[in-house]
Write a protein that binds this DNA or RNA. Structure first.
Lengths: 262, 262
DNA sequence: GGGTGTGAAATTCTTCACAGCC
DNA sequence: GGCTGTGAAGAATTTCACACCC
């Protein structure tokens, strides 16, 4: 069996150990080497993703979201005109940086006036593509079952959960939020058929990478990783991690630096 | 009533609108100006926090956590020696960067050999202060009540939930995981008495900032914000945000960039 | 051979400061 | 007066490449 380690870097861009992906290999690849197929797919993606528009940093995107919630706050309380300073005070970002962030996408304000709150809000929603609907699949819908409000909060962002999957036989066939939970073996096929663009991954950590690989094959370009595992994807596929326990351990570091006397 | 906006920047480092903090002001400050008191506190913190050891970037800390989980994986499967390349493949980070990250804290590897997995794991735990216990308080323990496993996962990181609070009268007095939920009015006092270092904030978004202010006053230096609100704190106090819906909207941006034909 | 640790270069991100506008 | 948008300077972070070690 070929593994990623057997490839030279020039040939195989497969960035992680093949073992992590193996458990599900048989589902879509019977006799040939899995790593090669996935590797090919990875490189093809890489090339097609390259001629993207100018790269906007991850952090900028995060901040744009902050601005958006700040703006919604202003609008709610009836404010019509806001300056970068107003926003900055609310989200703890220097006014200059806000202007720079926005300038990547156009000119939305007017000198000496500031920004029109509603107009800027709408532009931000444009920029974040919140206006056009996205189809996402959810693998391991435990959290979804627990917190029914999530579905609604996702819908607010124009993200529509189109299918549910699980690696746990016990969950398969169950009905959550009016949708049936499918086995992960049908993930690649169904996700592709639905044209899913995004996915939420919430499976046992050791299965996370293999699920992600399946999603990449299905053409999903954005994933939310609720697992404690680190997921590796080819360039062009974005993963964001949300792990309460892990974040806490990061805080641990800062807690410790405080008291050096102890 | 004095507001933050009335201060000049030179005098008042209070970084956000005073209105956000007002609802709870009466609880610990009867007659004098709240913003001034909090501002004073903020500056005193700022000075005392300044002579910290060399600043380690936020991102480095996040990566160290990744390395830690990768190492645990290696150890579990019996690997004794690992190279930066091994780790890098698993977490999608270039080997050079891993070495640079580690070099901030000492020399843990040996040329031509690599790192001893267990040794490095232990050092990482040291660095992240995972060895000494931390006391944290939880404001708005909804999630905690839902997902009992969280308590255990926190304990793994040596974080011990010492007290629960809520802004919702309906929750006060309830018993969760063997602990009573206290009203937020006693938060400052109790947190200080417990010597809490960290906190989890999970309240309605509009109350998040005021709760954070109370925590700052109580000496808490690290917070996990499960709210959709952006929380502003003085330098020296770290906030990490965990918001599933918000992360999704960030993904929205990346979903959209994919298809430019549509 | 392979692997670490680290100066120095390269790149990316943020701040500053000011022209231009109202 | 105040505010935006942006070139240029400044910081920070990442990559490169090589000395050194086994």
């Amino acid at each position: 069996m070929e593994s990623c380690k057997a490839c030279t870097a020039a040939v195989c861009p497969f960035p992680h150990d093949i073992e992590m992906a193996c458990p599900v290999r048989a589902q879509f690849e019977k006799k040939r080497c899995y790593s090669r197929k996935l590797a090919d797919y990875y490189t093809s993606r890489q090339q097609s993703a390259a001629p993207d528009d100018k790269k906007i940093s991850d952090r900028t995107i995060t901040r744009l979201r902050w601005y958006l919630t700040a703006l919604n706050g202003f609008i709610e309380q009836g404010t019509v005109r806001v300056s970068s300073q107003d926003i900055g005070r609310k989200v703890g970002v220097k006014p200059g940086l806000i202007r720079r962030d926005l300038s990547h996408f156009g000119e939305f304000g007017r000198p000496s006036i500031g920004y029109d709150a509603v107009f800027l809000r709408d532009r931000l929603q444009d920029i974040l593509h919140l206006d056009n609907a996205k189809i996402i699949v959810w693998v391991g819908p435990r959290r979804l079952a627990e917190d029914a409000s999530l579905m609604g909060r996702f819908a607010e962002q124009n993200c529509h959960v189109a299918a549910l999957f699980s690696t746990d036989p016990e969950w398969i066939g169950r009905n959550i939020a009016g949708m049936e939970v499918h086995p992960v073996s049908s993930l690649s096929e169904k996700a592709m058929a639905l044209g899913a663009q995004g996915a939420v991954i919430e499976v046992p950590p050791e299965k996370a990478q293999s699920v992600a690989d399946l999603l990449v094959l299905a053409g999903v370009t954005a994933m939310l990783n609720l697992t404690s595992a680190v997921i590796v994807t080819p360039p062009g596929v974005v993963v964001r991690n949300v792990d309460v326990a892990a974040e806490l351990s990061a805080l641990s570091y800062y807690c410790g630096t405080k008291d050096k006397r102890e």
